[in-house]
Amino acid sequence: MDAVIAAENVRVHFRRGLLGEPIRALDGLSLEVREGDFFALVGQNGAGKSTAMYCFLGLLKPTSGNLRVMGQVPGLGSKLYDRVAYLPEEPHYDLYLTVEEAVRYYVSLYGMRVSVQKIREVLERLGLEPFRDLPLAKCSKGMKQKVGIAQCLVHETRLVFLDEPTRGLDPIVVMLFRDVLREINRRGSTIVMNSHVLSEIEMLSNRVAIIEKGKVIAQDELRNLTRLDQERYAVAFETNGNVPDYLVVEEDQGSRVKGCIPADRLYDFMDFARQACLRVLECSLKKATLEESFVKILKGDGNTAGLK
């Protein structure tokens, strides 16, 4: 598959003020986003997620390193953004425009003419039709985000950048947002999302990069990241007092024990239960969540070898 974004050892260093401490916003970031990916950038506050996104969008020039977006070096207003949409964390739109004018304006910046009917269809779908003449200055954050989505739907973008897209939105809008993003991704668009909401990333993304101190410390398919030596079985059984040493006991009621065993000890546990004639009440695979993997990788005790 083609790399839509290929970043190799990208560094962004700057100073706050002339005498300020040098800041390494990105410090050797390397990652690859493939066509059709729903790619998530994950990291703590200040890890460099937004800076990376600004570099992809040409809003920041890397101090060094190689960066290609759709095979080209990103720059302000570059032609490569012909099929790219960006939804910022804070909807910094032209607030003096009305909802409909804003969608028409942002679509016109792609150098294409779109019929009023098509714009209204999209507004209708997003529930913005009754507010089409409302100035953006008077719209809620959710409505402004919908304006951002509307331009993606009108324009049929192939690469979408989302910076904390659902922050501050109500659950109904978030659900609508997810549905639209899934649809855009299904149609073949690549989506790069930067979010703190790990449960949302688990729901939407197929590939994840974890960024820490301006570097990618892990990058892989979501299913591999959540496996990450953390697959285990939740077991509950009646015991005569003996428990295997690899069992992590979570609940001990004397004759009944509940706990977890590592996935690779399942057969050992079954042998143990058979030999001791124990009644097994529950045995189910328990996958790690992205949150658990994220914390484990950040703490440095995850086996991230081969993930980058």
Binding site: L57, G58, L59, L76, G77, S78, K79, L80, Y81, D82, V84, Y86, P88, H92, Y93, D94, Y106, L109, Y110, G111, F161
Partner: peptide, 8 residues
């Protein structure tokens, strides 16, 4: 930034 992230 909404303008220059388009081919303008």
């Amino acid at each position: 930034k909404m303008v220059f992230t388009k081919p303008c």
